[in-house]
């Protein structure tokens, strides 16, 4: 996780376009100023960041489903549940599944776990739009390579 740049996903573990699922890992840093305030003496990941991590995981899944032809932008978060504390240094595993692909939007369900323990879940809706400019697409390609997005699966789907 690079909290300063809001890049919350470190690695794609599995992307299954047939099943429309993704599994990613996100290493919560040991130290960050966020934990100094949230909370002093009891550092935990803010729920909004867990929600964002679930959204980013879903976003990578949708980019795969859409073959990087459109960009998913966060629109609606429903049923966001913070089920347990996530602490500095823990490895968060997030799985997401496409619940529905509509016309110009898509809905996913995501779950975050530490080990086997479910820590957060949400239903997330995205608006799907063309990339605002080519540079944005180039940036996302570079990000995809960095987190191990399996570009080869796009050719076999």
């Amino acid at each position: 996780m690079d909290l300063d740049y809001f890049k919350l996903i470190d690695r794609i573990v599995d992307l299954n376009l047939g099943e429309r699922t993704i599994v990613v890992e996100a290493q919560v840093p040991e130290k960050h100023t966020i934990f100094e305030g949230h909370f002093p003496g009891f550092p935990i990941m803010p729920g909004v960041l867990l929600t964002e991590a679930m959204a980013q995981s879903s976003g990578w899944l949708l980019l795969g489903v859409l073959k990087f032809e459109r960009m998913p932008f966060l629109a609606i978060v429903k049923e966001a549940k913070m089920r347990g504390f996530v602490s500095p240094g823990q490895l968060l595993t997030i799985e997401a599944k496409v619940e529905h692909e509509g016309s110009g939007f898509a809905v996913t369900k995501a779950k975050g776990r530490i080990g086997k323990d479910l820590k957060c879940s949400a239903e997330i809706t995205f608006g799907l739009t063309p990339f605002p400019d080519p540079a944005f697409r180039v940036h996302m390609d570079a990000m995809a390579e960095k987190i191990g997005f399996p570009m080869q699966v796009l050719k076999h789907d």
Binding site: A75, I76, G102, S103, F105, V107, T125, G127
Partner: peptide
């Protein structure tokens, strides 16, 4: 935005 929600429910 609300119409996205409605569209999902109708779909």
């Amino acid at each position: 935005l609300d119409f996205l929600d409605i569209a999902f429910a109708i779909d």
